[in-house]
Amino acid sequence: MTSTVTAPASALAASQPPARKRRRRRSTPLIALLLGPAAVLIIVFIVAPAVYGMYLSFTNTQLTGFAARSPKLVGFDNYAYLLTNADFLSSLGHTGEFVLYSAIIGQTVLGMVAAILLSRPWIRGKGIFGAAILMPMVVPEVVASLTWASVLSNNSSGTLNLLTSFFGAGSTDWLQVVPLASVVAVNIWRGIAFAMIMFQAALEDVPVELIEAARIDGARAIQVFRHVTLPLIRGPVFLYLLLTTISTVGAFGLVYFLTQGGPAGQTRIAAIYIYERALQFSQIGIGSAASMILLAIVLVLGLVYVRLAKVEV
């Protein structure tokens, strides 16, 4: 029988052989060298633009017109303007609906269902099923948009109109009649694969013994999921919610290609509003302020998720 004595960390460090210390000192420049390029890129392309964007949000910077020659600091004027501007507030509302229906409800719930189904041993053709769900993720955004524009086309040869015509329905302009529902459906289709992958990995980590014990105790499948599985995968679920919320709030291409924010602004989510203001109408100051407001909202949502999940980020 042997006994182990735990030495204090300082004592351990003091007892480290000088050769290891020298090696660590020698490797420090290498670590700096390896991290340096990434750090420089992050500072140049992420941190600096974000700081500059924040500065611009306090100015009346425009890209065209005489005002472009001499931008001035305007304090919180842009923020005050946006927070009382019906179009901007409406775009935030549309963004909230878009995130809620497509990311939080659609992608998360359907991704979870797909992950659970694929984890069942009795399911046949898992490979085909999994590939079909994964496919939207590998299709480039523009291709996906054009494909869906064809599916939702208002003429009789549009795929959805062809399908509904089998039931005697006439042609419908889906992007005009139900624009938000259409872009929500497309975003669910596109994001479900990532949700499924994350949830599949999480489900594999749930100990089988716990589930079997619950079943022996008489729990039904729903009860097992609600009281055993879900609490154990809460971390990955909230992590996914965090990631999908961030990416969906910033979604632009998919919606812009399909509707350009129309009709009548019904799909003008915040990213499209910012694009219109900053680049189409050249009002960089207002566009930057709108971006900062959106960033603040995403940060608050992120903190809420992290708090709920108690995930260390």
Binding site: Q62, L63, T64, G65, F66, A67, A68, R69, S282
Partner: peptide, 10 residues
């Protein structure tokens, strides 16, 4: 677009 570009000095 010309007035805006001209005004900005482009």
């Amino acid at each position: 677009v010309v007035p805006g570009f001209a005004g900005a000095g482009y």
